[in-house]
């Protein structure tokens, strides 16, 4: 042992083991085998003959089809209106959160913590059933109720995102605007908010995705037929006893994906673009 030169010892050591490259190869092969085994296991757990009957039932899908365009449009409408409220209210709350006025900060913090803390479904039901009884104006429009319910919940998340964006705007940008004679409010509107929006556009897109899915919650309200959105028509088709198992749910699920997947791709593009322009 002691007579061996350090160089020889090292060579012996390397020969005894796989090179890092070969080791990575072995690990990769093992991973693929495990993944394949998982697929096979899942495939074995499924009764394939009843999948066609209960999940991909063409007749059930065809029966649902005429109702899809209106429901799809309603889902989009509810989402867009809610997001419009959410973005305005969320930005306002974020500005209050970073304000120098303590009262504004407190109000905003309470709002955000409240709406992030309660299940959205509770609030949707509360707005749908209780709110019309306690406000002294007529709150009958479903669209208005939906916008209030989903928009207010979403604005709490938007506020948190926007706050991070507002704080990420470099101090020098504000100083440059002020040195040109812009007031605090003017600086906020012309420099800070537009730049914060650019920073938070990717996470904001994710918020739109969440909001799209949250429109499913309003199926728990008493909707009239022209107001039905995707989840509602899916549920109705399920309970109609027309057969086809869960096929309606899969059909409306696919409709959500038609909205959310492009949004996801859009968000990733924005993120990549943002990373490029910052480097």
């Amino acid at each position: 042992m002691t007579t061996q030169t350090p160089a020889a010892a090292r060579t012996g050591h390397v020969r005894a083991r796989l090179s890092p490259r070969r080791r990575r190869l072995v690990v990769r092969v093992v991973q693929y085998v495990v993944l394949l085994a998982a697929f096979v296991a899942v495939a074995l757990l499924i009764k394939w003959d009843s999948v066609a009957e209960n999940i991909f039932n063409i007749d059930a899908a065809r029966a649902l089809l005429p109702k899809i365009p209106r429901a799809f449009g309603n889902t989009l409408l509810y989402m867009v209106c809610s997001f419009a409220l959410s973005i305005v209210l969320g930005t306002l709350l974020a500005l209050m959160r970073v304000s120098e006025v303590r009262l504004y900060r407190i109000v905003s913090t309470i709002y955000v913590e409240f709406f992030r803390g309660i299940p959205a479904l509770l609030y949707v039901i509360a707005v749908g059933l209780a709110l019309p009884l306690v406000v002294n104006f007529s709150l009958t429009s479903t669209l208005l109720k939906v916008t209030i319910a989903l928009g207010m919940v979403s604005s709490a998340y938007v506020a948190e995102t926007m706050r991070a964006g507002l704080q990420a705007v470099p101090r020098g940008q504000i100083e440059a605007a002020r040195s040109l004679g812009m007031s605090t409010a003017r600086t906020t509107m012309t420099v800070v908010v537009p730049q914060a929006f650019r920073i938070v556009l990717p996470p904001l897109t994710n918020e739109v995705i969440l909001l799209t899915k949250d429109t499913a919650l309003i199926s728990s309200l008493g909707l009239m037929i022209p107001e039905f959105e995707l989840t509602k028509i899916g549920q109705n088709a399920l309970s109609s006893g027309a057969g086809g198992g869960l096929t309606p749910m899969f059909v409306v699920g696919a409709c959500y994906l038609v909205i959310t997947i492009p949004l996801g791709i859009f968000a990733r593009r924005l993120e990549a673009k943002g990373a490029r322009s910052r480097s």
Binding site: A176, S179, L180, M182, S183, P194, Q195
Partner: peptide, 20 residues
């Protein structure tokens, strides 16, 4: 102060051009 600043130009070490 805004009225005074509008008549006083300032140039910063870090340029501070509006990025958007």
């Amino acid at each position: 102060i805004d009225a005074v600043r509008s008549r006083v130009g300032m140039v910063f070490q870090g340029f501070n051009l509006f990025a958007h």
